[in-house]
Design a binder for these strands. Structure first.
Lengths: 205, 205
DNA sequence: TGTACATCAGTGAACGCGCGTTCACTGATGTAC
DNA sequence: TGTACATCAGTGAACGCGCGTTCACTGATGTAC
């Protein structure tokens, strides 16, 4: 409890943290400005010293999430170097791991209905996260015979889609039937089969 | 305007339809009981003659959605018979096509936070939809050499995840960068690569 | 070090709003005789 | 066919609630001299 600085200390971040916890616990709908203020031991009106309103809080949650996400993707990419394959697989894994470690951020980014285009800073950092995955895909595509090489942007999108789908459908308590595999294994296997389809892994292992 | 039957005619379904339109236009959050009632030209209190409350309306939207979805999956499966491969590909395509044709239902089913387990009828029909995809996967797995055959439930989950991811990320105006491919093509290509990875398509085309 | 003043983060009361839900009711429809 | 009655879908008024937002304010902190 440092509580240093002016009055509260760092109310802006305290509100963001409260919002993230609320979003994580009750979904994007469950978050209210008033409740976040209460969680930060502050009057709802105080929020307006730091944010324009409710929307800006969610947007900032998402922005910080994209920042962390982009960093983790970058680190995953580096961890796999110099192997293009290892880098690519690591970024796929990083997606799921991010969703697990930062559920509040994840929901703010992908399920809150926040408009990435409408917030200047948001768009930039979202693009940065995306570019890591695309770079990994581009590296990898060098290893595919040019003739049958699909655009890197395309299979980066495939991996992103499969990762996102696994998170949404199987890494939460969510709808439909629960599949009896840990999401990590499911994604790992899926990416493996996909890469074999690209001719990047031996046909049988 | 048949307006037959008692008073309104078929208020229950009129409310569901209004709810679906609202959900489609404003997202799962945008739907309110009061607004649905107004759209059906009825007092909010009238809703309680037909539903226990707000939640039950959304659940019924989702239920009807799963019903349509299961039917379409079934039809897609049949359309591919007797080829296991054609059936499987068709069910994958049916997913995206359903999301396009019935956006309100889709959102109610997958983005409204409705709990499939909590509503008896919902769970059953969701399982029916899922079982079609799993049957298609099981058929297909017969064509994979037993030694390297992954469980059918697993690659059914992969295709479901990729389909869902493509819808969520690229078939809406949603987050991140927009990929310059029509979602249908993206999904088709992704499934193709994946099936090649399973050894079910020729390695080069 | 001490005093006077400016800054500005957070307060507390108030607002209008639309929400979901309840209740006693009304009056159109269906049915029995 | 006509009348009396039962049913029950929808009404309209009311409720309590929590929301986001505004406003004039207060009083702790930082700063100039």
């Amino acid at each position: 409890m440092p509580k240093r600085g002016y009055h509260h200390g760092n109310l802006a971040q305290a509100l963001i943290n409260a919002a993230l916890r609320l979003i994580e616990e009750k979904g994007p709908t469950g978050f209210t400005l008033s409740e976040a203020a209460k969680a930060a031991d502050v009057t709802p009106a105080a929020v307006y010293r730091h944010f324009q309103g409710r929307d800006e809080i969610i947007a900032e949650c998402a922005r910080q999430g994209y920042e962390i996400f982009a960093d983790q993707m970058e680190r995953a990419y580096q961890s796999g170097q110099p192997s293009a394959l290892a880098s690519f697989e690591a970024t796929g894994r990083a997606y799921l791991s991010f969703a697990r470690q930062h559920p509040g951020h994840y929901v703010a980014m992908f399920e809150s209905g926040v408009n990435v285009q409408h917030h200047a800073g948001l768009h930039a950092v979202a693009a940065r996260a995306n570019s890591v995955l695309e770079r990994a895909a581009a590296d990898l595509s060098q290893h595919i015979p040019a003739a049958q090489r699909p655009p890197a942007q395309m299979f980066s999108a495939h991996i992103w889609a499969m990762s996102h789908g696994v998170v949404e459908l199987f890494a939460r308590n969510s709808p439909g039937t629960n599949v009896p595999y840990p999401p990590e294994d499911l994604l790992e296997a899926g990416i493996g089969i996909y890469l074999r389809g690209l001719g990047l892994l031996a046909p049988d292992r």
